[in-house]
Amino acid sequence: MKLKDPIDNFPSQTQETIYARISSGNSCYEIASFIVNLRQISFEASLEEEYMICVDEEGFPIGDLPVLDTGLSTIDYSFTWY
Rank of each mutant, 00 (worst) to 15 (best):
F43T: 10
V67Y: 04
L38H: 02
N9M: 00
I31A: 09
F60W: 08
I53Q: 07
A20S: 12
E49G: 02
F43I: 05
F60M: 11
D8R: 03
E57I: 13
E48Q: 12
I53A: 08
P11C: 06
E44C: 01
E30Q: 15
F79W: 07
D64K: 06
Y82E: 13
F34C: 01
E57H: 11
Y77V: 05
I75Q: 11
A45K: 04
M52I: 05
D64Q: 12
V67I: 15
D64G: 00
I35Q: 09
T70K: 00
Y51G: 02
S78N: 11
L47D: 06
G71H: 10
I53H: 09
L68W: 00
A45R: 05
D76E: 11
D69F: 06
D56M: 11
I53G: 02
S24R: 14
E50W: 06
N26I: 04
F43S: 11
V55E: 07
G71T: 10
S12D: 05
R21L: 10
C54I: 09
T74P: 01
D8S: 09
E16N: 10
I31N: 11
Y77A: 03
I7E: 04
A45F: 02
I62H: 03
E58P: 01
S78R: 08
M52Y: 07
S33K: 15
E57Y: 12
A20C: 15
S73T: 05
S33Y: 13
Y51N: 07
Y51F: 10
M1F: 12
T74Q: 12
C28L: 15
T80C: 02
A20M: 08
I35V: 15
E49N: 09
P61H: 04
Q15N: 12
L65R: 10
S73D: 14
K2Y: 12
L72R: 02
S46N: 12
N26A: 14
V67L: 15
Y82S: 12
Q40K: 15
C28S: 13
D69I: 11
Y19R: 14
F34P: 03
M1W: 06
Q15H: 10
N9R: 01
A32L: 15
A32T: 13
L65W: 14
E57L: 14
E49I: 07
L3K: 05
F10W: 02
Q40F: 01
V55M: 10
M1E: 12
S42G: 04
L3E: 10
I41P: 00
A32F: 11
S27N: 14
I41V: 12
Q13P: 00
P66W: 03
D56F: 12
R39F: 07
E58M: 05
L38R: 05
F43Y: 03
Q40C: 10
S23G: 06
P61G: 04
D5E: 13
D5W: 02
L65N: 10
C54H: 08
Y77L: 09
E49L: 10
G63M: 04
M1T: 14
